[in-house]
Design a protein around this nucleic acid. Structure first.
Lengths: 211, 211
DNA sequence: GTCTATATGGCGATAGAC
DNA sequence: GTCTATCGCCATATAGAC
């Protein structure tokens, strides 16, 4: 792509993207300046323009990358064909790992989509994600997996919320409910990995009793 | 506060705050210009400065107002002394009403806190919220309310996540799981009002069986 | 209190030397 | 490919007339 005559630092583009991802996530799209990103990457500001033309294009690339990192885990649970409880376990594990490494990811993504919903359809198309088809699979599979009569999307939304909330609302929740203590909160997050699947298990058990 | 010699449109300050809240929520703090807010309020741009001095101060006022609108419902469930399931029901109802009228509220608040966590402690203090005390009450009350041995904060986090996620992730979730259909999603949101408390009921029932 | 006109600064973007 | 210098815009903010 950038086969130029002079020596180009190998992986410069990747290093820029990593720096940009970090800065965009921490300061937001508009709060981050090109200078901030250049500093973080340890390069000259104008090089950003050389590689990515302008800020919008750079941001788009970063967003696509981060979005592609976050979404598959969500669709995984939808499209696998394991038992419901096992799928929940795998889902929670996958997201816990992802979020431990990228705690700002959910706020960043939801904020961006919220401010710019028009772009979503196109992004999904480019990623080769077909909502129609995914939905069909989900419906059929989850419908008969345990919660008969309940729209399986409720399970999915509940699961997503239970997993994501402690990260999305971390500063607030940690301050109010944990006196701001980091270590205690980390422990809390770890506990949830086991606790969330267990919670669904209990709910399913309870549902079975009710019949 | 603004007792001036000339006729001031009554409630101008409030009208500005409402307009600003709307614009800030839809465009973000940096994406919103003072001109945008002035247009929304139907006044001249410089009047914003007359009333609120500068953009930061205006934003702070807006944020405080919105934060004060969102937080009490959360603390309510913590500090009441009703049975656990009843508290959950009330909590879900209260938030459903709030979110139906202010769908952008959670993203806005979590984004701002995420970008500006330093301000949080001060804001809570100004609002007269004492995390220490709230936490003590919560611990004692929920501990003996049903989920023995489980940190009650897990219940709270789960509840918050289940309620908030469909709003925070609405554009994405509605697109993927509902083909973008508005009406179907509205119905989905309504269903959750009953479904979430029911879900906790089942989990508690399941927990009872396990003993 | 409300308006017009203007100052100021920051940031994205490009030109052009090397 | 990388740098320096510079242009031009836009948004905040203020001065000052009415």
């Amino acid at each position: 792509m950038h086969e130029n005559q002079h020596s180009m630092e190998p992986g410069a583009e990747r290093r820029i993207l990593e720096a940009a991802a970090k800065v965009f996530m921490m300061k937001g799209k508009l709060g981050a300046s090109m200078q901030d990103i250049a500093d973080e990457a340890g390069i000259n500001r104008t090089l950003l323009h050389y590689y990515f033309r302008n800020k919008d294009k750079l941001f788009d690339k970063v967003f696509e990358k981060l979005f592609a990192r976050a979404l598959p885990a969500m669709l995984g649970i939808m499209s696998s064909n394991r038992p419901l409880l096992e799928r929940i376990e795998r889902f929670v594990e996958a997201y816990t790992i992802l979020l431990r490494e990228n705690p700002y990811l959910p706020v960043f993504i939801f904020q961006e989509i919220s401010l710019n919903p028009e772009r979503l359809a196109g992004t999904l198309r480019e990623m080769g994600i077909n909502p129609e088809q995914t939905l069909l699979g989900l419906r059929a599979e989850l419908e008969q997996a345990g919660m008969r009569g309940t729209d399986p999307r409720h399970i999915l939304a509940s699961m997503m919320g239970m997993v994501l909330f402690p990260y999305i609302g971390r500063p607030l929740f940690q301050t109010i409910a944990f006196r701001g203590e980091e270590e205690a909160y980390e422990k809390f997050l770890s506990e949830r990995t086991k606790l969330i699947p267990q919670f669904f298990k209990l709910a399913l058990a309870g549902a079975a009793i009710q019949k």
